[in-house]
């Protein structure tokens, strides 16, 4: 194994882990507020769809590449957030079972996006296609630091969205732990009755938690569309949403341990690929590598699930009028 491979493991690992991480942060917002969110998978897909659609339209209108990407990420966040409203309404207004609602949101997202992709391709672009082709995002290499062995890889071929994610993660931490909004949101996940009695609006906080998870998931979906997929299509539903859920469960619903979990997934995946390459195995073997993050998830869950403590009021339907 040479240094180049180690570099590749780090570069690919980071570009896969960070989108998982930002999606997991979204999940933490939702679950810390007390709403179970299994809908991340669908939210990231819907976000990526809206973002990719915006990018395709902008590109067709001749917008420059950089502003297209800004637009794509903005729309992905908005699209994910809006679609998350559906989960919020189902859970909060219609008091649906939150697990079922999450899965429904996912199934509906898959159906809607694949249908709309085809319809839009046919009606607007006259093409029979089930995808929106996107250009792979440009990568940035920080001069100087990047030439440090191994460590430099973290500053080599970095997607711009990785920087965005780190900035967003810091903001998310600040909001969650330093602001009144964060204090009340987290309180909802433990005892919504306390927030209600203290004059907080539980439904609004629940709603905010879910919508934030949608926006962040949308951004994550767009990251995948702009990196490993280079398109939007049904291939976006690879279970990454569920991986990030597993991520914050290991992370015990706090940010830094969640980051660590996501990094483990990312590096497991990228090392696997490098290994297949190194051993010169046929491409079918990469299928086996693909399962590494999933197997790892199961194993980690076996060791950590019992210890970790979910927010106390998670999944409870909060009914103000209950006495």
């Amino acid at each position: 194994m040479n240094i180049n491979m180690i570099n590749n493991i780090i570069i690919d690992g980071m570009s896969f882990s960070l989108p998982l991480f930002i999606m997991a942060i979204g999940g933490i917002f939702s679950e810390k507020s007390g709403i179970t969110n299994l809908a991340l998978e669908g939210l990231q897909g819907m976000g990526a769809f809206i973002g990719a659609l915006a990018a395709t339209l902008a590109a067709a209108a001749g917008a420059p590449d950089a502003s297209t990407k800004v637009l794509a990420f903005t729309f992905a966040a908005v699209g994910g957030g809006l679609y998350a409203c559906l989960h919020a309404v189902l859970c909060i207004r219609f008091k649906a079972n939150q697990v079922i609602s999450g899965v429904v949101i996912n199934i509906l997202a898959m159906a809607l996006t694949s249908f709309l992709t085809k319809v839009i391709n046919r009606t607007m672009f006259g093409a029979a296609s089930d995808k929106f082709i996107l250009t792979v995002s440009k990568r940035i290499t920080v001069p100087g630091i990047s030439s440090i062995p191994v460590l430099g890889a973290f500053f080599t071929s970095v997607y711009p969205f990785e920087i965005l994610i780190i900035v967003l993660a810091v903001i998310a931490w600040f909001v969650l732990y330093k602001t009144t909004f964060g204090l009340r949101l987290r309180a909802c996940g433990d005892n919504p009755g306390a927030v209600d009695a203290a004059g907080g609006d539980v439904a609004k906080l629940h709603f905010a938690g879910v919508v934030i998870s949608g926006a962040l998931s949308g951004i994550a979906g767009m990251c995948f569309a702009y990196s490993i997929l280079a398109k939007f299509s049904g291939d976006i539903y690879m279970g990454y949403g569920y991986l990030s859920i597993a991520g914050y469960i290991f992370g015990n619903w706090s940010l830094l341990p969640t980051l660590a979990a996501c990094l483990i997934f990312g590096f497991a995946r990228s090392s696997g690929y490098q290994l297949v390459k190194l051993l010169g195995m046929p491409s079918a073997y990469s299928d086996l590598v693909m399962i590494l993050p999933y197997v790892l998830t199961l194993l980690l869950l076996v060791f950590l699930s019992k210890k970790n403590q979910a927010p106390k009021a998670l999944g409870e339907i909060y009914d103000k009028s209950k006495r």
Binding site: L38, V99, V103, M238, G239, Y242, I245, A246, I249, M290, I291, Y294, V295, T297, L298, L301, V302, S305, K306
Partner: peptide, 14 residues
């Protein structure tokens, strides 16, 4: 191990 069956069955699916 108290593993949420949704998460584990999705993992097993993949």
């Amino acid at each position: 191990f108290n593993i949420n069956e949704v998460v584990s069955s999705i993992m097993i699916n993949y």
